[in-house]
Every structure is written in structure tokens, then in C-alpha cells.
């Protein structure tokens, strides 16, 4: 019996707190929760799996949103760190419920949930990435990065730069964007030098920084003098690259600032173009149905060189040639 009281009192306490706050806060609350939709402000919500400043996947989207925030009247809500897929689904649902104009599900693992949520909100536009399909739904956009293209260019540069003929790749789990990038990297390296040895290790974890670091160390021991890798845990590997003085190629965001002395170049995603098109579409009444891919040709993928790295001109020329070849179609990456 006693515990009944305990819980009742607990509940009552919750209620009290809320009642008290509710009282103080009513006037303010009504203005915040029922923002009139008639204003011109375009409301975007982003749900993303890792931290907004992860120097990788999530940051690429946040940075792009910040760029277009300066161009038009936007209200941006961010829910980052949603690695729990069910929590992300709840967040997506809640933002749609609150009347956001565009809800971005920025994680390929959110797709299954989005396919169930989107039909419940036919007047809300959703965007899902990185992904290639829109489930045939009229209110879902999708976007992806042809990260194998940038990976290919990086592979060409790495093979041209390597003196030992051995390259090391530090991957998380062999899936999605990371797999695409790594496959592209290996293809580019082989194209530049068929004899090159590309050692690819997937550590089995997106978060184990120590293991990523030790993997990079193992690559260096095995003779690798150029390293690359994908996902958040590569910061550990970049640390090893800078200690050992071996070159590093980055992807997803510009990683130069982590190790200014060894990062040669980074493949950076610019989602601004895609976002502008999606926003224009939503404003003109088209809520979805389009699948976008950013690549080297449409400027969504950019190879950003580290100006502080002394890259030989002939190597850079090979990289530029690869970019040009991919853009004009003479080089076809992947299938």
C-alpha cells in the first residue's frame, strides 16, 4: 500500500511542478507553440544520428543549412545525436505534427520509419538521405552523395602520392556511404596503379576511436604511407597519420583542421543545391517524389585541397584529370 502513495506523491509532484510552470509561462507558451503558419518563414527540422559538429556526416548537412539560412527566411530546428532509431522516428513524427514545412531525416537508417510516418502527414514534406528511393510517396524527397566519385579521385591521388605502393583504409562497418566511398577509393587507386596494394580494414564500430587509431597504426606497420577512412571514429586514425607523418585523405567534411600537416584533401558534401531545389519545390506545392544525387558534376561534391600541404603538381594534375574524366563521363565509377 505504502508504495502506492509514493508513486501518487511522485506523480502529484510532477503535476505540481508543471502546473506551477504552466501558470507562469502561459502567455509565452501560446506564442511559441502555435506559431502561425501564415508567416513567410520556412520551417525546417533536421533529425540526425550523430553530433551536429562531428566533422563528418551530420555536420555536412548542418553547414549546408547554415549557408542557405543566410539566403532566405528560415527557421531551423535540429535534433542531433539520434542514434536510437525509434527515438529518431518519434522526433520525425513530432516535428511533422508541429507543422514544420520540411522534415529532414538525415540518416539512411531512418528510411524504414519514414516510409510509415510520411503517409500520415500528406501535407508535410520529408527529405531522406542518404538514400536513393522515395518509396513512391508524393511527399518524400531523397538525397544521396555519389561518394564513390570523390573516393575515386582520392584513390587516384593516393596511389600517385604513395612511394611504398601500399594504401591503408580505416572503415567502420561495411555499409552505406562508407562502403561506397571505400569502394570508389580502391577503384581509383587501382586505376592509377594496378599494382597498388589497398589494405581495407573495417573495425566493426562507428564509435571506437581507439580501435580506429590502432588500425591506422597497423596499416603504417604494413607499409602504408597514405591513409583514408570514413565515419566519425576516423579522428583516431587521423591522429596516427599526423604522428607518423603519413598522408591522409578525408571525406564527408573538410578534415584539414584536425591535422593540418598531413591532410592532403577532403571530399566535402555541399547539400545547398539540393536543399534549394527541395525548398523551392515545397514552396511551389511539390512535396516530394524527387531523388537527388550530389556528385562532382553538379557541384554537390567538392574536392577541397589543404593549401598547407605541399602536393606535387603532377599528382594534383592526375586528380584534376580524374575529376574532369568523371564529369565528362569518360571515367565511370561503380555501376
Amino acid at each position: 500500500m505504502r508504495r502506492t502513495y509514493t508513486w501518487l506523491v511522485l506523480l502529484a509532484a510532477f503535476a505540481l511542478v508543471v502546473a506551477a510552470c504552466g501558470g507562469d509561462d502561459n502567455a509565452e507558451a501560446t506564442t511559441t507553440t502555435s506559431t502561425p503558419v501564415t508567416t513567410e518563414t520556412f520551417r525546417i527540422a533536421v533529425v540526425a544520428p550523430s553530433a551536429a559538429n562531428d566533422l563528418a556526416f551530420t555536420q555536412s548537412m548542418i553547414d549546408s543549412l547554415n549557408v542557405i539560412d543566410g539566403e532566405m527566411d528560415l527557421e531551423i530546428a535540429v535534433t542531433d545525436g539520434m542514434f536510437v532509431v525509434e527515438d529518431a522516428a518519434a522526433a520525425i513524427r513530432d516535428y511533422a505534427d508541429k507543422g514544420y514545412d520540411l522534415v529532414i531525416a538525415h540518416g539512411s537508417q531512418y528510411g524504414g520509419s519514414l516510409a510509415e510516418i510520411a503517409p500520415d502527414f500528406p501535407d508535410t514534406s520529408f527529405a531522406w538521405g542518404t538514400a536513393a528511393e522515395t518509396f513512391g510517396l508524393p511527399n518524400v524527397y531523397s538525397y544521396q552523395a555519389a561518394s564513390d566519385q570523390g573516393g575515386y579521385v582520392m584513390g587516384v591521388l593516393a596511389a600517385a602520392l604513395s612511394k611504398t605502393g601500399t594504401l591503408g583504409v580505416v572503415g567502420p562497418v561495411e555499409v552505406g556511404d562508407a562502403k561506397l566511398y571505400v569502394d570508389g577509393f580502391a577503384a581509383g587507386a587501382k586505376a592509377e596503379d594496378p599494382a597498388i596494394d589497398v589494405k581495407i580494414v573495417y573495425t566493426g564500430s562507428f564509435s571506437d576511436v581507439a580501435l580506429a587509431s590502432e588500425t591506422a597504426q597497423a596499416h603504417v606497420t604494413a607499409g602504408a604511407d597514405v591513409l583514408t577512412g570514413s565515419a566519425q571514429m576516423v579522428v583516431g586514425a587521423i591522429g596516427v597519420a599526423s604522428t607518423e607523418g603519413v598522408a591522409w585523405f578525408g571525406t564527408q567534411a573538410n578534415q584539414t583542421q584536425i591535422a593540418p600537416d598531413v591532410v592532403v584533401a577532403s571530399q566535402v558534401y555541399h547539400w545547398e543545391g539540393v536543399l534549394r531545389e527541395i525548398i523551392a519545390g515545397v514552396q511551389s506545392g511539390t512535396l516530394g517524389g524527387e531523388a537527388y544525387t550530389i556528385d562532382l558534376a553538379n557541384g554537390g561534391e567538392v574536392i577541397e585541397y589543404n593549401p598547407g600541404y605541399d602536393l606535387p603538381a603532377d599528382v594534383k594534375a592526375k586528380g584534376d584529370a580524374a575529376v574532369a574524366g568523371i564529369i565528362d563521363g569518360s571515367i565511370v565509377v561503380g555501376g
Binding site: 564509435s207 576511436v209 581507439a210 587509431s213 591522429g239 604522428t243 584536425i258
Partner: peptide, 17 residues
């Protein structure tokens, strides 16, 4: 020691160590 050895910090750096 882990952070300094890796020269970096990140969310959940220890990964349940």
C-alpha cells in the same frame, strides 16, 4: 590518458571500455 594518447575527444570516446 586515452584522450591524450588519441590526441582527440569525441562523444562516447571510451566506447564502453
Amino acid at each position: 590518458a586515452l584522450a591524450i594518447d588519441l590526441k582527440i575527444f569525441q562523444s562516447n570516446l571510451t566506447n564502453a571500455a
